[in-house]
């Protein structure tokens, strides 16, 4: 099933065109990796999918992006509902300066969802269980999230999305601040999460893309050069530039 379809997407920062006619299709409950050298537009592309680029002044887009059949680039899209559905994990873990518990409850509260003390407790517990933090943190729920380790912070940021029942999770280089062991554990978590969530990960780490993703897109200078299942991209790339990139000739 296709969860997200991107058709002829163009994006300009002022006069600079950062995305050129990008088209791609993202399958539901799979992990898709976007790779490419720095500055190729992969983070920009990711930020189109939850309209985070709207925060930057002077951004123009054209084209269409359908999520569950709805064009999210249209003027009348409900940004709040969109961002609730399409969550984002950032490069630097950014838990809020609140307690672990309040970090997860935050989404529930801002969306005005109905809850009681018991249901909220249950949501916090479930979300933490899903990211395998519950056993470590169950006695520290009211400790500040800023006191956690980097890996725990990043897991907490993922749990924060699960609490509001996002069904797409965008990850912008989620492991670049983490050590190799933590990276490996987050990758395991991603494999676990894909049973329920559609995951799109931007990474400059090709090994990571090869390890975790089902599909891979290669971007260069704002263009989507090649988009296919991960196995074919890494073993039989069709485009010369893809081949050059994954064999390490530049990037």
């Amino acid at each position: 099933m296709d969860k997200i379809q991107v058709k002829n997407l163009n994006l300009w920062y002022g006069n600079f065109q950062a995305l050129k006619n990008v088209s791609a299709t993202f399958a539901e409950k799979k992990i898709t990796a976007i790779i490419g050298p720095s500055g190729c537009g992969k983070s920009t592309f990711l930020r189109v999918l939850n309209r985070m680029n709207d925060l930057i002044e002077g951004v123009k887009t054209s084209g269409q992006v359908f999520i569950d059949g709805e064009n999210i680039l249209s003027q009348d899209v409900d940004l709040i509902a969109l961002r609730k559905k399409v969550g984002m994990v950032f490069q630097r873990p950014n838990p809020f300066p609140l307690s672990v518990y309040e970090n997860i409850a935050f989404g529930i509260k801002i969306h005005g969802l109905k809850y009681t003390k018991d249901t909220l407790d249950a949501i916090v517990e479930n979300s933490l269980r899903e990211v395998l933090l519950w056993d470590d943190l169950k006695d520290k729920l009211h400790r500040s999230a800023l006191s956690l380790s980097l890996e725990q912070k990043q897991r907490l940021c993922i749990a924060r999305l699960l609490a509001v029942k996002s069904d797409v999770v965008l990850m912008d280089e989620p492991c670049s601040a983490l050590d190799p062991q933590a990276t490996q554990r987050i990758e395991e978590l991603m494999r676990e999460l894909k049973k329920h969530y559609t995951i799109i990960i931007v990474t400059h780490n090709m090994q990571q893309a090869a390890r975790v993703s089902d599909d891979t897109g290669f971007m260069l200078l704002g263009e989507m050069i090649e988009f296919a299942d991960t196995h074919s991209i890494f073993t039989a790339p069709k485009d010369r530039r893809t081949e050059e990139y994954i064999t390490g000739r530049y990037g």
């Binding site: 985070m52 925060l55 709040i80 950032f90 950014n94 809020f96 989404g107 801002i110 924060r160 509001v164």
Partner: peptide, 9 residues
């Protein structure tokens, strides 16, 4: 950014 990305106003 984190709050906006969660859909906060």
């Amino acid at each position: 950014e984190g709050a906006f990305a969660l859909g906060a106003t």
